[in-house]
Design a protein around this nucleic acid. Structure first.
Lengths: 222, 222
DNA sequence: TAGATTGTTAATCGATTAACAATC
DNA sequence: TAGATTGTTAATCGATTAACAATC
């Protein structure tokens, strides 16, 4: 016995809903725009209206993590940016492994949006020997067989999977075996991972399907 | 008066939660895999367990749209695929306009996953005269000034925005003026549209942030 | 001070899950 | 028939919103 109660801290963290975390990223993005536009402070009302949320939701979301505002004043933008970055873990830079050097993979190699938010693709992999060797966009490329060595050597914890659907699960398994803790999967297939590995899937065709549903079921079409 | 009651049908359609629609796309994807693997029928339990949902959720989601199963039997895969495609509107082919021929835009031009689900990029646009003219991946390219004419001529209703954040809102405005009904936005910025235009945003850096949050807040790290 | 805005509690709303009669 | 599985209703759960005392 002696383990009847789980530690409170862990419980509290685990209790944060996914939706809250994804809104946190949106708050961060808006805050960065606000600062760039010269704003020193903002409010839950302003932040919410920029994103189509209520002010109560903004405050409630932040309340999961602490107190960041000043009653009567609002939030100091740069202060809140720093706090949200700490919460999300992007107060530091993360090296990322990219697997798959097809069309999509090569595009992601050159995508500027990653660097801006503290991510840098540190190594890229493919099974095709013809696609690896020379660096692309200043990123060194390797055969997939070198995955474990490179991931360990560069202390990489995050990976992006941009391989065909049929190969995605095996690539994920190898990434996990190599010590990766989080995977962003672009292959249009469900990939499973143990619970200590975080998985996020983005299926580009599915995103378009959300649009067609809305267009087809649009109440009024002038 | 005489408008006291809104039409029932419209209300029912508007009542479908976003989360249900996105799960519908996941069901479709799994069903297609099941058929490819030789399965003729499936069940809410099987479909759910493939995706990590409960059987009750699968049945409840489908119930928004009708009755598709057979008590004691389950669902005939190809039949349910056809039904879900009809619901999502992907029982036909959709021409899509792509704006922005940077790294990401060009990769999306060659992405095979779109065709597989009934989407085909019918025209691509950029403001840089150097990037347009010759077809890329068999897709004709145009200067953005030709947007309205091409969209009308090809009867395009959906668009993908892959331009820098600073240009995204203006591009969206021009797409909407040209008659586009749905926009998939990859620019890392909130883009607003009138309520009769459907917007879906995908921010690749934000997806990675969901991973870092989980990794940083991982209960146990062996 | 008066006005603005937070953090937080309570009330509401909506979505998920459980249960089960009906059906094959 | 017995076993399996649906569609649907009721119960539970969780997330959003409203309200307000505390604060600047």
């Amino acid at each position: 016995m002696g383990e009847t109660h789980k530690p409170k801290a862990t419980l509290a963290e685990g209790a944060v809903p996914k939706a809250v975390v994804s809104r946190l990223s949106l708050y961060l993005r808006e805050l960065q725009h606000l600062v760039r536009d010269g704003n020193e402070t903002t409010s839950s009302t302003q932040l919410g209206s920029l994103l189509g949320f209520t002010d109560a939701q903004v405050r409630k979301d932040l309340a999961y993590f602490g107190q960041f505002g000043y009653p009567g004043i609002g939030y100091r933008c740069t202060e809140l940016i720093d706090a949200v970055k700490r919460i999300l873990g992007t107060d530091r830079s993360w090296p990322v492994a990219l697997v798959g050097l097809g069309n999509l993979g090569r595009a992601l190699l050159g995508y500027r949006g990653f660097q801006n938010q503290g991510f840098s693709i540190a190594a890229a992999f493919d099974v095709d020997p013809q696609k690896v060797g020379p660096a692309i966009e200043n990123v060194p490329t390797f055969h997939l067989d070198e995955l474990a060595a490179v991931v360990a050597g560069k202390k990489i914890k995050l990976a992006i999977v941009a391989v065909p659907a049929a190969a995605a699960q095996e690539v994920a398994d190898r990434l996990i075996a190599a010590g990766i803790d989080g995977i962003l999967n672009f292959a249009p297939v469900t990939v499973t991972a143990p619970s200590n590995v975080s998985m996020v899937g983005v299926d580009l065709a599915i995103e378009l399907e959300q649009l067609t549903f809305n267009v087809v079921n649009q109440p009024s079409k002038s």
